[in-house]
Design a protein around this nucleic acid. Structure first.
Lengths: 169, 169
DNA sequence: CTTGGAATGTCAACAACGCTGACATAAAAT
DNA sequence: ATTTTATGTCAGCGTTGTTGACATTCCAAG
């Protein structure tokens, strides 16, 4: 073994755990998230909405008929914050709020056709970027990407993520 | 070939490009970013700062002596936004602003000892989560994670990310 | 039936952090 | 000497998060 060029710390298997590698991962996460939101942000701005509207549209589309409370726990914001966003979406005719059938205190949320159209526009832009990244990196990298992201979530969030995973094709 | 259980669309190699897989990746990114920022957010709140302060501390620490303009382009915000954050950090004695030597219009930014201490506290919390995620996922997953993230960045941002990569141990 | 609690909505106020626009200053560049 | 560049500052605005207080509706338990 000649000079050290990476074999320090604890064997090459642990090289990916050096502070330097971790910092690179942190910066990659920061910069990538900017890209991740860039395309939807442009579309939203043209419609006079913000990211919060996107999130609401996404998860209402995702779990059709969800209650306000369920949406709150997924989004991790207060009801007042969500309410403000939801109200504009309802006023603008993108979301419909129906009184619950079994419990009439609850409201079930649905996208209207206009809401579905905007959701599709937003998610297609975001999917297109994700698709390009996936294609560039390849299937094995994608599997690793998902593994690391899932390990990075808070426990409770991860449970919500899993319980959300395989609904509705 | 019996019944279809995944072999549709375009061969299993392309299964990771289905809209369903892409949507899962999008949601993973959303939820993981929450975890990514959760620990620093708690620390920042205790000190009366926000995420913007964290970012400024991180990149000043990263590229010691950087100019305000350079920091602006890395962070992707306006000088007015950055200035507000920078002013409080300077007032609180976490950041020092020195007049440039070659060009005295420029200001070179440095962390004070107190600034370095807070930066270390923040980044150690964030690294700890990243370390746990990396350890859980393994080196191969980490490589894939980084590949996908890099592919997801805007071109210009990716250049900045690369040019930032290997400075200073 | 009355009371308590859960789910929701609304109003007010506030903070963080983006943005634009306008203007001042200092120094470099022409 | 004039223009441009880099920076700072002030004022104002928008989105989206926060708390706190209070009204309404309705289920459920006493």
């Amino acid at each position: 073994m000649a000079e050290g060029h990476g074999s320090a710390i604890g064997g090459e298997n642990l090289l990916f755990l050096t502070d330097e590698q971790l910092r690179k991962g942190i910066e990659a996460m920061f910069f990538a998230y900017r890209g991740f939101t860039a395309d939807p942000d442009r579309i939203l701005e043209a419609h006079g909405y913000g990211r919060a509207h996107h999130r609401a549209l996404h998860f209402i589309n995702r779990t059709d008929g969800t209650t306000v409370n369920n949406l709150l726990s997924i989004l991790g914001v207060t009801k007042q914050s969500l309410n403000r966003v939801l109200r504009t979406l309802i006023e603008d005719g993108l979301v419909e709020s129906r009184v619950g059938r079994t419990d009439r205190r609850e409201r079930n949320l649905f996208l209207t056709e206009a809401g579905e159209a905007l959701e599709r526009e937003l998610s297609e832009a975001q999917r297109e970027r994700m698709r390009a990244a996936y294609r560039a990196a390849g299937p094995q990298a994608v599997a690793g990407f998902r593994q690391v992201l899932e390990a990075m979530m808070d426990d409770e969030i991860r449970r919500q993520y899993y319980s959300l995973r395989d609904r509705r094709a």
